[in-house]
């Protein structure tokens, strides 16, 4: 009976989840600019500094072991916060790109396609990097390889700007300022 109850509850939760996801992922009717305004700015240099192996090595040499572990945990938490924002921004850019994929203008559609591809790549990398950071939080001395995130984010910023320029060459797109 307990097993039946567990499965019934699981099925009900799955139905609620599926219907919830279905409603929340209906075609985005909000204007692209509304999505673009939700993009949060990221200081990419500060992030680079946080994940720099040289900086880590310097701190390791200069600080006592316990202090280094504490500082390293703080740095990892800060890096995770940056990556979470980068992942959210990537999702917004993917949504903007999805809306522009069906544009009649071939160049815009192509730029949108690349934006979506790069956005998805960044979201994937951000997820993997976050997992690695949470692992590294358990073992602060382990090497943290989040460099692909930086590279991916830079590429994505470029694609977003290109898309904005192709959609309306005469005026700037706000999202570029945020990236």
């Amino acid at each position: 009976m307990t097993l039946a109850l567990v499965l019934v509850i699981a099925a009900a939760l799955a139905l609620v989840l599926i219907l919830g996801v279905t409603v929340s992922t209906r075609p985005q009717l909000s204007p692209g600019s509304a999505l673009a305004q939700r993009i949060e700015p990221i200081d990419i240099e500060a992030f680079r500094n946080l994940i720099s192996p040289a900086e880590n090595e310097y701190l390791r040499r200069r600080l006592p072991a316990t202090e280094f572990r504490r500082v390293q945990r703080e740095r990892l938490r800060a890096a995770a916060a940056y990556i979470r924002v980068a992942g959210r921004n990537a999702a917004l850019l993917v949504a903007i790109g999805q809306a522009a994929r069906s544009a009649s203008d071939g160049a815009t559609a192509e730029a949108a396609h690349e934006l979506v591809d790069n956005g998805l790549l960044l979201r994937r990398n951000a997820t993997i990097a976050l997992l690695r950071i949470y692992l590294a939080l358990a073992w602060p001395q382990s090497a943290l390889a989040a460099a692909p995130i930086v590279h991916g984010y830079e590429q994505l910023s470029g694609r977003a700007m290109l898309l904005g320029r192709l959609q309306n060459p005469a005026v700037p797109v706000r999202i570029s300022g945020n990236l």
């Binding site: 204007p31 673009a36 809306a99 060459p169 005469a170």
Partner: peptide
Amino acid sequence: VTMSVLPLPENNLAVWNRE
């Protein structure tokens, strides 16, 4: 669903280049 072009704020290419 017709997606309108981004309602972009008034500005110019110089700002674009600066960005």
